[in-house]
Deep mutational scan, measured.
Amino acid sequence: VTLFVALYDYEARTEDDLSFHKGEKFQILNSSEGDWWEARSLTTGETGYIPSNYVAPV
């Protein structure tokens, strides 16, 4: 499993987005949709879409 870490804070803009804080780690569930990836936060357990340019591989 490839994990990603948040480089910046992000505040959700829609109900499908996932808010997160810098340093939070994610498991990517689906990265085939372009710039927005479906991810699960390893901190909160919540699932939603995150901007791929806000995260980097651990």
Rank of each mutant, 00 (worst) to 15 (best):
V5P: 00
S19E: 04
Y10L: 03
A6M: 01
G45T: 04
P57K: 09
V58A: 10
E33P: 11
Y54W: 08
E33Y: 15
T2Y: 10
E38N: 08
A39T: 02
S52D: 03
D35S: 09
D17Q: 14
S32P: 10
Y8E: 08
V58Y: 14
Q27R: 08
G48W: 02
Q27P: 00
E38A: 08
I28A: 03
N53V: 11
L3Q: 09
P57S: 07
E38Y: 14
T2L: 13
V5S: 04
T14F: 15
D35R: 09
L29F: 08
T2D: 12
E38G: 04
G48K: 02
D35L: 12
R13Q: 12
L29C: 06
V55S: 01
L18K: 02
N53G: 12
W37D: 01
R40I: 11
V5F: 11
P51F: 06
G23L: 03
Y49N: 09
G23S: 04
I28M: 04
S19D: 05
A6T: 02
G45L: 08
D9N: 09
P57E: 11
S52M: 09
A6E: 00
L18H: 02
D35V: 09
Q27F: 14
T2F: 10
G23C: 04
I28C: 04
I28L: 07
P57T: 06
T43E: 13
E11P: 05
H21D: 07
G23F: 04
W37F: 08
Q27L: 14
L7E: 04
V58H: 10
E11W: 08
E46S: 12
A6R: 00
Y10Q: 01
P57L: 11
T47D: 04
F26A: 00
S31T: 11
V1Q: 13
T14W: 15
G45H: 07
D35G: 11
L42H: 06
A12F: 03
E15A: 15
S32L: 11
R40Q: 12
S32T: 12
E38W: 14
E38Q: 14
S52L: 05
V55I: 12
S31V: 13
I28R: 04
S41F: 03
A6N: 00
T14Y: 11
G48A: 03
E11L: 11
Q27E: 12
R13D: 10
E38L: 15
T47G: 04
L3M: 10
S52F: 08
E24H: 08
T2Q: 14
L42T: 08
Y10A: 02
A56V: 11
A39L: 01
L18N: 01
R40M: 13
Y10E: 01
E24L: 01
V55F: 11
W37G: 01
D16A: 15
R13T: 12
V58E: 12
L29P: 05
S41I: 07
P51M: 08
E15Q: 11
L7A: 03
T43R: 15
A39Y: 02
L42A: 05
A12R: 09
P51G: 03
A39E: 01
Y54M: 12
F20T: 03
V55W: 01
I50R: 00
L7N: 03
A39C: 05
G48C: 01
T14N: 14
R13W: 08
E38T: 11
G23A: 03
I28V: 10
E15P: 13
T14H: 15
G45D: 06
L18D: 00
I50P: 00
S52H: 08
T47F: 08
F4I: 03
I50D: 01
W37Q: 03
L3G: 04
G23T: 02
L18E: 01
T47V: 13
E15D: 13
Y49T: 08
W36G: 03
G23Y: 05
Y54V: 04
Y10D: 00
T44P: 00
T44D: 04
G48P: 00
L3D: 06
T14K: 14
N53A: 12
K22C: 05
T44H: 03
G48L: 02
E24F: 04
N30R: 08
L42C: 07
D17L: 09
S19F: 04
F4D: 00
L7K: 05
